[in-house]
Design a binder for these strands. Structure first.
Length: 489
RNA sequence: UCCUCCUUAGCUCAGUUGGUUAGAGCACAUCACUGUUAAUGAUGGGGUCCUCCGUUCAAGUCGGAGAGGGGGAGCCA
């Protein structure tokens, strides 16, 4: 019996498929990269379809020494052989090789990856090769699965995928420092009569930047399609050196007309649970691998630093329980009444009006509720101009219909709000925050012509992947991380 | 940007109160063995102790500056 490939565009069988019940006796073509070569007979071959390797048996005496010498870690092979029951213990089937073709050699002395555990820091410096490890194999298969699930979730619910621009001229949102986009020469850029750089001579005839958010453009789409989402790269030139910030990251931003803050929260919670469920269902092997990896890592930690939860256990807990929903005011009360506060263990002051610090968010999520928490109704003074002012606030304690979702281990994973749909209120807020109304005229048109209550949020895709994979450093969940002072590849 | 820790072989790390020729495991090479599971055994090669300046008879070890990296904080997703 010969394997007939109906799904692929070549004749080979992928290892994942081979391992999931290909009958013994089938003749197959397998291609992949050598993970290890044991005993001069057993090749562990991997093609990235799964962490499991297929064991290729090269029977002693059947192959030239000159070929065997070239079967080194990292080399690529084409194997033609027969699926047979394995006599060894580590696998149920293996492929008995009839022919071994070396597609690409890998100098054993120079190939940096060894069949052993490497540190994540080392692999980060070898980011172009780290996909060939089990850990990064699992992480990036999960990243793919989650990206796919994002589209499936919104598509199933009738959202339109809107591609908002990467290059923008709007810097109104103030979401952070921006990367300037220009074709003007750095040296001797043209100046106007005020001595400033003359951007009218620049490529776009004005000053432009890389986007920090697609939200404002997303709102334009929502005012026609009712529900849209964006999913694309976002750029922030902040000098942030942390395990949860990137200069280039991917964000998902749904925007929904006719939705209020409650609807927004319901959607966000359902979305996060959908993504986790999708990963649990479709990438069980990868989750289990990362779960085991994390458990191993936890063993190295002192008892008080251990999370006490396995990865799978944590994910199932999130999926099977409602997120806690509290107002900002309630959050402040909880913090003020905590023993943690009474023992003066918070470094930053706690009082109504402050922006919640990491330590406060972590206390709420990890100590108090021990599950994801949605905080709503933040003070207007610390939030963006487009967020809807809550009605009936005590003077001096104005709040907006904002919501942040805080997740254990990574903090803020979602930030969103109901938008201010009332033109007069919005303009008043923009003036107070010194945002030039003329430049934002296109945005204000949404409020001038058929404005509706609407809401939306942004979910940091890498933070979501961190949560699902348990990876603690955000640089390990994006293929080629861009961070301050670091832009390799 | 701030605080803090780290930098010794390709990798992971040890290196005593400053002392003579800087070690181990893995990787690599050679040989042996052959149903292995990060194969095993033997032998061997492999070092700008991050860089510079200083203290000292003597610096991997002590001091200063710089570079790179980790963790935490701020900013946020």
């Amino acid at each position: 019996m010969t394997f007939e490939n109906t799904n692929m565009f070549n004749k080979r069988i992928k290892i994942k498929q081979l391992l999931s019940g290909t009958p013994t006796g089938t003749e197959v073509v397998v291609m992949g990269w050598v993970r290890t070569f044991r005993n001069n007979q057993f090749i562990a071959l991997n093609d990235g379809s799964t962490n499991a390797n297929i064991q290729i048996m090269a029977t002693l005496g059947e192959f030239e020494d000159t070929i065997l010498k070239r079967i080194t870690t990292g080399a690529s092979l084409k194997i033609i052989g027969t699926v047979v029951e394995s006599l060894g213990k580590g696998q149920s089937v293996e492929v008995k090789a009839k022919s071994i073709e070396i597609l690409g050699d890998s100098d054993a002395e120079k190939f940096p990856l060894q069949p052993k555990k490497h540190s994540l820091e080392f692999l980060r410096e070898k980011a172009h090769l780290r996909f060939r490890t089990n850990t990064f194999g699992s992480v990036f298969r999960l990243r793919h699965a989650l990206a796919f699930a994002v589209h499936q979730f919104y598509n199933d619910r009738g959202f339109v995928y809107l591609h908002t621009p990467i290059i923008t001229s709007s810097d109104a949102e103030g979401a952070g420092e921006m990367f300037r986009v220009t074709t003007l020469p750095l040296e001797g850029a043209p100046k106007n009569d005020k001595g400033e750089i003359d951007y009218t001579q620049d490529f776009f005839g004005k000053s432009t930047n890389l986007t920090v958010s697609g939200q404002l453009e997303g709102e334009l789409g929502a005012m026609a399609f009712s529900e849209i989402y964006t999913f694309g790269p976002t750029f922030r030139a902040e000098n942030s050196n942390t395990t949860r910030h990137l200069a280039e990251f991917w964000m998902i931003e749904p925007e929904m007309a006719f939705h209020d803050i409650e609807d927004n929260m319901n959607l966000a919670e359902a979305f996060i649970k959908y993504l986790i469920n999708y990963a649990l269902k479709n990438n069980a092997d990868d989750i289990d691998f990362l779960d085991a990896r994390l458990a191993e890592e936890e063993k190295q930690l002192p008892t008080e630093k251990r999370s006490g939860f396995g990865l799978r256990e944590k994910l199932e807990l999130v999926v099977n329980n409602d997120f806690e929903r509290i107002t900002y005011t309630e959050a402040i009360d909880i913090l003020l009444n905590s023993n943690h506060y009474k023992k003066k263990k918070f470094q930053y002051e706690v009082k109504w009006g402050i922006d919640l610090q990491s330590e406060h968010e972590r206390y709420l999520v990890e100590q108090h509720f021990k599950k994801p928490v949605i905080v709503t109704g933040y003070p207007a003074a610390i939030k963006a101009f487009y967020m809807r002012m809550n009605d009936g606030c005590e003077p001096g304690k104005e709040t907006v219909a904002a919501m942040d979702i805080l997740a254990p281990g990574i903090g803020e994973i979602v930030g969103g709000s109901q938008r201010e749909e009332r033109l007069d209120q919005l303009e008043a807020r923009m003036k107070a925050m010194h945002i030039p109304l003329e430049e934002m005229s296109w945005y204000l048109d949404t409020r001038r012509f058929g404005t509706v209550p609407h809401a939306g949020f942004g979910l940091g895709f890498e933070r979501m992947i961190q949560f699902v994979t348990g990876m603690t450093n955000i640089r390990d969940v994006i293929a080629f991380a861009r961070t301050p002072k670091n832009c390799e590849y």
